[in-house]
Design a protein around this nucleic acid. Structure first.
Lengths: 239, 239
DNA sequence: CAGTGGTCTAGACCACGGT
DNA sequence: CCGTGGTCTAGACCACTGA
């Protein structure tokens, strides 16, 4: 299974997590009943429940009494789009889309290399991207990826990276973004950003730096997003 | 105990939570061993562990193997000061202080009454406050409290509300802030705010609206904070 | 109704901390 | 060494879901 020095329930957690990652148990489907798992793993049912508890806390599983235990994806991705809400005429939030402008290998700035936990001076994948609400350009993004986690990334067709990146990370490279840190600040628009977003030079910009992590909390992406501060709303639950 | 229709472990959770609130088991001290609790409550040890699991997830208890289970306070209050970081010359973050400018009873706007879950048209406690880093005024705050949770609030000496409000809420009124929702947006400074904070008229302001909740998720405070967007940094962990 | 997760029992032994 | 929490067992019965 995994490291045999770990507690049984951790080993079982790892095994279930792998089966989910390998889509042996696909998204939104139920996994075997806890009593079945207990007998296949040869442990008491309480031990299986401990493993499932951990996976529930991680957002990979959801228990529904009387129905079963279901594979879920952290609702995370939706929560990453809390900001820059633009509403349709009917008042519903619009799902933002993304359009990749360029991709290349570059040596990242030191702070990016640190954020990605790669040695300074080594190349990484650099990507420039525009986020759209409908046909309105609302967000310009500079994105960096550690190239060892994304082999062949530059060879992908642009369509494979649209409309959203995180599903592509998961399906093409098995990289699941499970958590992130965001830092928000306000800056004045310089000329390139102003023209890209169609705001006045010097207009207040909301700038969001995000470090994204996988489930082992290893960094898998760093990005910096720029958007007009007008109409910006960022809602967050604290603790 | 509490509602006898609830599962035993929930009743035990409530009883432990009450003993913590009443300081029968004070902050940073250990509570009785799980085996002791099991015999006093007359349940199996696993049931006590379930109750403690819940309280751990809520941040009220911390287990230390070999030592015991200790009463903690959600590290929350510190996390509320992530924003507007100003650094001393040595680079250490400075703890902000607060100075209450005025307190009175007023009828709050509808959206505040809703946020506090009180009937519209009823009076609430209104408070104006300035936040300081050292002797620099960096944040102006308008705060609303439901008066039934804070009897005698207007009679407190101002010193009892300084430097921080949440410890005063807890010690004087037994109101523990356990979670909050914050919404961030950027606005232009009007004349009163501009002069209060010493920024130019129309300068970009970071505006933070916060609804604070107790452990039953009942609203206990609503506030709106204004600060200059220059130098603003807000760091948040997502999911 | 059968099958699922939710609660609970009454033990056992292990790992860690401090005396 | 003892006392703490951490892991694990092998059952039991309850509550909910859907056929």
């Amino acid at each position: 299974m995994s490291d045999p020095r770990l507690p049984r329930y951790q080993q079982i957690r790892d095994d279930i997590a792998r089966k989910i990652a390998d889509q042996v148990w696909p998204l939104n489907q139920s996994i075997p009943a806890e009593s079945d798992l207990a007998s296949t793993y040869g442990v008491a049912i309480g031990t299986v429940r401990q493993a499932v508890d951990v996976l529930m806390a991680e957002g990979l599983l959801e228990r529904l009494q009387g129905k079963g235990t279901f594979v879920r994806r952290p609702s995370f991705s939706s929560s990453l789009f809390r900001f820059f809400r633009h509403h349709s005429e009917s008042g519903e939030p619009i799902m933002p889309t993304g359009k990749v402008l360029s991709r290349s290998l570059k040596i990242p700035p030191v702070e990016v290399a640190n954020a990605l936990a790669i040695s300074t001076g080594l190349e990484a994948i650099a990507m420039s991207r525009m986020r759209l609400f409908g046909d309105r350009e609302v967000l310009k993004e500079d994105i960096w990826l550690p190239k060892h986690r994304f082999p062949g990334f530059l060879d992908l067709a642009p369509e494979e990276l649209e409309p959203l990146l995180y599903p592509a990370y998961e399906q093409k490279f098995g990289v699941l973004v499970a958590s992130a840190e965001e830092t928000l600040m306000v800056e004045a628009a310089d000329e390139t950003i102003a023209s890209a977003l169609g705001v006045a030079l010097g207009a207040p910009l909301m700038v969001i730096e995000r470090s994204a992590f996988d489930q082992e909390r290893k960094p898998v992406e760093w990005r910096r997003s720029y958007g007009s501060a007008a109409g910006f709303r960022y809602k967050i639950e604290v603790r």
